[in-house]
């Protein structure tokens, strides 16, 4: 037996007092991980005027929130955030720390892992707690960090057997977010911000954001087209179908590269990860990079001219045929049902 703690920490990524979805997704996962090793779940909130956020995390099953609130932390900056988080880890030695694999998470987590000499696995698609035998040694309750590697051609399970702290980043949309059925009483531990000259080595002089109007992640139905759709003209049919079904339109990387659709609607490893109730893949062959972004969908319909296309391997329903013929027929059939 080791003397490691059983704490699971989740970094709450926030902007203007609003948390990123991925943070709540990680809390839901973190709750399960903590339960399976009889541990506690803690949220770590850094920012300014964010006490309400710390309280909010209790809806997702947190046992305790660690809050560092100071005007110098109003916006995310690498130096103060990593310095403060590292010192918290060095003081408390949590067993697991989870970050969203966002631009911020991927900037912050490696710096903390380096400072605290912790293992860190990037872009995990699954996390589990399990007993492991590694090099003839028995380990209890290790974190299995499962991620695609080698351009998505293999799935690797990474472990951090001997270190007190196991860290991982997880992509947005991969884990399911759900409210806790039995939320704990709010318990916020405030940690004082002590300034340090290194915090000021980098200053933000300008920031520009375009609010993302498109949100295919929360669409219940997604009609997604690939290179096989053939043209921007043909893509119009997919728009029509998506509208009819009350869904959103999306595309594969090949469709984005071909200019059929915008990047913000790209599903897959270099785009968005989605898990809708229904995913209709039209003219998408189903490269691993694409599948990684949609294979958790509840129902998948594949429409492709090639009966051997890999997409059929993960589909619930397969239609072999040309999109230009199948889609209008689908639209017609659906309209008939509505009559």
């Amino acid at each position: 037996m080791n003397n490691f703690s059983n704490d699971v920490w989740v970094y709450i990524e926030q902007r203007d007092g609003k948390a990123a979805d991925v943070s709540y997704e990680l809390l839901s996962k973190g709750r399960k991980l903590a339960d399976s090793m009889g541990g506690t779940l803690k949220s770590v909130v850094l920012g300014h005027n964010v006490e309400h956020l710390a309280a909010e995390t209790f809806k997702f099953g947190v046992d305790e929130a660690i809050l560092v609130d100071n005007e110098n932390l109003y916006q995310y900056r690498t130096m103060p955030y990593s310095r403060i988080f590292s010192s918290l880890v060095n003081e408390h030695h949590p067993r697991i720390v989870l970050f969203g694999a966002t631009i911020t998470g991927r900037d912050l987590a490696p710096r903390i892992a380096s400072n605290t000499k912790s293992g860190l696995t990037a872009d995990c698609t699954d996390l589990q707690i399990s007993d492991v035998t590694y090099l003839k040694k028995e380990y209890k309750d290790l974190l299995l960090q499962i991620r695609p590697a080698f351009g998505g051609n293999i799935i690797a399970t990474i472990i951090t057997p001997d270190n007190p702290t196991q860290m991982a980043t997880v992509r947005e949309g991969v884990m399911e977010k759900h409210l806790s059925e039995s939320p704990r009483q709010v318990k916020i531990s405030r940690v004082e911000y002590v300034p340090d000259p290194v915090d000021e080595l980098i200053q933000i002089i300008e920031q520009h954001r375009e609010e993302n109007k498109v949100d295919i992640k929360s669409a219940p139905i997604i009609v997604s087209g690939g290179y096989g759709v053939g043209s921007k003209e043909n893509f119009r049919m997919l728009h029509e179908l998506a509208k009819l079904l009350g869904g959103e339109i999306a595309g594969s990387r090949a469709a984005v590269d071909a200019g059929f659709i915008n990047h913000e609607r790209q599903v897959g490893q270099t785009g968005v990860t989605v898990r809708p109730k229904l995913y209709i893949a039209v003219g998408i062959s189903g490269a691993i990079q694409h599948r990684a972004g949609m294979q958790e969908s509840q129902k998948i319909i594949a429409i492709n001219t090639d009966p051997d296309a890999p997409i059929f391997g993960i589909s619930h329903y397969g239609i072999v045929g040309d999109a230009a013929e199948v889609i209008p027929r689908f639209i017609e059939a659906f309209k008939n049902k509505l009559k």
């Binding site: 000499k117 912790s118 293992g119 860190l120 696995t121 492991v132 590694y134 299995l144 960090q145 695609p148 590697a149 998505g152 051609n153 293999i154 799935i155 690797a156 399970t157 990474i158 472990i159 951090t160 057997p161 001997d162 270190n163 691993i288 594949a302 890999p310 059929f312 391997g313 993960i314 589909s315 619930h316 329903y317 397969g318």
Partner: peptide
């Protein structure tokens, strides 16, 4: 600190769809 515990190739189930 991190070690590769297991590696699997991505093999598709295939043929299970209707």
């Amino acid at each position: 600190p991190t070690k590769v515990h297991k590696v699997e190739s991505v093999i598709l189930a295939g043929g299970s769809h209707i």
